[in-house]
Each structure stands twice: as structure tokens, then as C-alpha cells.
Amino acid sequence: MIRLSSVSKSFDGGLTYAVRELSVEIHDGETLVMLGSSGCGKTTTLKMINRLLEPTSGTIEVDGEDISQRDPVQWRRSIGYAFQGIGLFPHMTVEENVAIVLRLLGWPTAKKRRRATEMLELVGIDPEKFSRRLPDQLSGGQQQRIGVARALAADPEYLLMDEPFGALDALTRDTLQQELLSLKQRLCKTVVFVTHDIFEALTIGDRIAVLHKGELQQVGTSEEVVGRPASPFVRELFEKPAKQLAAFRDVL
């Protein structure tokens, strides 16, 4: 379980806050989606969990232990991270990219290979065909799958995903979302998933945390946030696409 308690982050010494007084719990085995428009502090929160950023105040605990006490490099290796804009290493082959965390953890070569092949099969990439290619030689969807495979390779308990499907076309995104859902059920990971896409949030999230201007508006299941919005912002957030959907249905 990951628990954030009154976490704040300011990049300008306290004048403005990217995240302010955020308290939220992520339960084991659930997928928590952080939903909000750009600049709402969702990526900052994810980076703080990964310790790419340190909170200005507040604590983040994992299973009751404050992560600021941990060695940041070791901590990052123990969690999976799928990056916004993919973040594959362009000079490494698909296989090397997938196995990078295993390499950092010092796995023997044969074991790394086997695991990378497994991971590629898991995300639906043919290892025979693709494992020796460079990321540039793959389509956007394929690259995104490799990113997920890399995040999963070391079998981490926690998985952080930062708009992993943001740059993809609607069809590919839909496919990947469905695949992620089935993966989630098979692998039983605790996932923090960041997105600005309401439908993606509703599809993937067990619970949804709505963020606005660095502050948590509401956290709850999709029924709760849609049915009983806690603030006018949350209500508007879900009403607008609902109206759009209605209009779309009328056209049909």
C-alpha cells in the first residue's frame, strides 16, 4: 500500500504549488487513476512516488515505511515506470530496452533473455521478429507496448504509468487499454495510472482521483465520482463529455 500524507511540491520556493496538501491511499492490487488536465500536478505526484522529485513537505509511505529513507536508485529499480512519451533508449535494441532494469539488477544474461522474451510475448510483440530492432523501427503502438514490457520486466509490485497511451491514435489506444485490463487481472499489480482522458480513466481505474490545480478534488470509484461529484469542478468534468456523447448519439 502506498500512502501519501499532506504531500506538497513547490518549484519556486513556496510561491506557487504544483501539488498542494495531497493525501491519498493506493490499496494493494488496485488501479488508481489520477485524472486531470495538464498542469494539475498528476505527473509531479507520480515522479514524487518514484523519487525523481522530492516533496517540499509531507510524506510518502510504502507499506508503512517512509520512502525518503530508502536508497532512491534501489527504490526506482523495484517499481515499474512507463513514461509519458515512451522514453525508450534509442540506441538499445527492443530486447535491451526491455531487459534494462534486469541488467541494472545484475541478472545473468540467459535469464535476462528469457525474461525479455516472456515480456514481449506478454505485451503481444513477436520476439523473433522484433527483439533485435531499434525503437525507431517500430510503430508508436509497438513502442508503447515495449515501454509497458520494460516496466513489468522485473516483476515489480508497483507500476507507475504516466499517460502511456497519450500519443496514440484512438483505435490503438483502445486496444492497448483492453490489453492492460486483462494484464492487470492476470498480474495482480498495484497500479498508479495518470491520464487526462476521462474515458480512459473510467475504463481502467478501480478508483479515480480527480486533481485540479494541484489539489485533490475527489477520490472514489467511477460510480462515485460520476454519480456523486464532490465539487462543481468534478461535476462539470464529467458532464461535458456526457453532453458531447449525447450529441454524438443524436447525429447517429
Binding site: N50, L52, V73, Q74, W75, R76, R77, S78, Y81, F83, G85, I86, G87, L88, F89, P90, H91, I100, V101, L104, R150
Partner: peptide, 25 residues
């Protein structure tokens, strides 16, 4: 920046980030 952040995010030490990612690129 994206690649550098990914290097750090997957748990590379600064030396590994240099040796495995920055220098080769």
C-alpha cells in the same frame, strides 16, 4: 530530456546513466 529522465526513472545511478545512455548517444 525524456531519455535522460527515463534512464533515471528505471533506476540508473548517475554513472550508469552516463555510461549506458548519455555517452553512447
Amino acid at each position: 530530456r525524456e531519455v535522460v529522465e527515463a534512464a533515471r526513472g528505471v533506476g540508473m545511478s548517475r554513472w550508469q546513466e552516463l555510461r549506458l545512455v548519455r555517452l553512447p548517444l
